[in-house]
C-alpha cells in the first residue's frame, strides 16, 4: 500500500533519475518489459491502444460533434447543456469526458482551454493533445497574456472581442465550439467536419479555412 508520502515520492524520483537510462525510449521499454513479465499488460494490447488513438480516437470525433451542432439546433442545445451526455449519441464518451463542457465562440467572445497544473485534456473526443498544449510556454502564458499567445497562432483579436480562458483545474474538461464559416450553410455534416481542426476546438484557431 502507498503511504501517499510526498517526500518519499521525491526520493524515489531522485533514485530513478540516477539509475534509469537517460534515453526515454529505453526507459519506457524497461517498464513495458517488466509489466509484460508480471502479466499486467500484453505487448499486443499496447499495440492496439496505440492504433486506437492513432486511427480512431482523435480530433475527427470532436469535428463530427461540432458539425452536428452547427446543423442541428436541438443537438447544439443538448451539447451546450451537457456535453458529457450529448457525445454519447456518437459513442464518443471515454477517457476524460465524464464532465465535458462545451463553450461556444461568438462574434463577441473567443474561448481557449488550458491545464496550467498538469495537462488535462478531453482525450476521448479530441485524441492525443499536441506537445505545445503540455509545454511550459503555453501553460504559463495563455492565462496571463492570452492575446499574445493567440497571435502566435495567427489569431489576432480586436479589444472588443472578450477572451475567455478555461483552466482545467478539476475533472471538468472543455471543448470549444468554433463559429461556422460563412458560405457553408448548405454543406453536409461530413463536409463541415472536414473543416474543423483540433486547434479550433482547443481555441488556438478562430477562423476555419473554407477550401
Amino acid at each position: 500500500m502507498s503511504t501517499f508520502d510526498s517526500d518519499a515520492a521525491a526520493k524515489v524520483h531522485a533514485h530513478l533519475h540516477s539509475h534509469l537510462p537517460s534515453e526515454p525510449a529505453l526507459r519506457v521499454k524497461a517498464l513495458e518489459s517488466l509489466l509484460v513479465e508480471r502479466g499486467m499488460i500484453s505487448t499486443e494490447t499496447i499495440d492496439a491502444w496505440v492504433e486506437a488513438y492513432s486511427e480512431e480516437i482523435g480530433p475527427k470525433r470532436g469535428a463530427q460533434v461540432v458539425a452536428r451542432a452547427w446543423l442541428d439546433a436541438g443537438f447544439k442545445a443538448r451539447l451546450l447543456k451537457n456535453a458529457a451526455e450529448a457525445i454519447k449519441e456518437f459513442g464518443f464518451e471515454g477517457n476524460a469526458t465524464g464532465h465535458l463542457i462545451a463553450v461556444e465562440n461568438t462574434d463577441q467572445t473567443h474561448n481557449a482551454v488550458v491545464c496550467t497544473l498538469c495537462s488535462c485534456y478531453p482525450f476521448s473526443i479530441l485524441g492525443m493533445s499536441p506537445s505545445w498544449y503540455k509545454s511550459a510556454a503555453y501553460r504559463s502564458r495563455i492565462v496571463r497574456e492570452p492575446r499574445k499567445v493567440l497571435a502566435e497562432f495567427g489569431v489576432e483579436l480586436p479589444d472588443e472581442i472578450a477572451v475567455k480562458i478555461w483552466d482545467s483545474t478539476a475533472e471538468l474538461r472543455y471543448i470549444v465550439i468554433p463559429q461556422q464559416p460563412k458560405g457553408t450553410e448548405s454543406w453536409t455534416e461530413d463536409q463541415l467536419a472536414a473543416l474543423i481542426t483540433r486547434n479550433s476546438m482547443i481555441g488556438t484557431q478562430r477562423e476555419l479555412a473554407v477550401s
Binding site: 521499454k29 499488460i41 499496447i46 491502444w49 496505440v50 492525443m128 499536441p130 505545445w132 504559463s140 502564458r141
Partner: peptide, 27 residues
Amino acid sequence: YGAVDVDETDEPFHHDYEGRMWAISRN
C-alpha cells in the same frame, strides 16, 4: 518561458515510446 511552438506537426505521437507509455498508463 518564451514562444509556443506553433509549427508542431499534427501526428498523435511524435515517437513510438509516447504511444506505448500512453497505452500503458491507460491500462
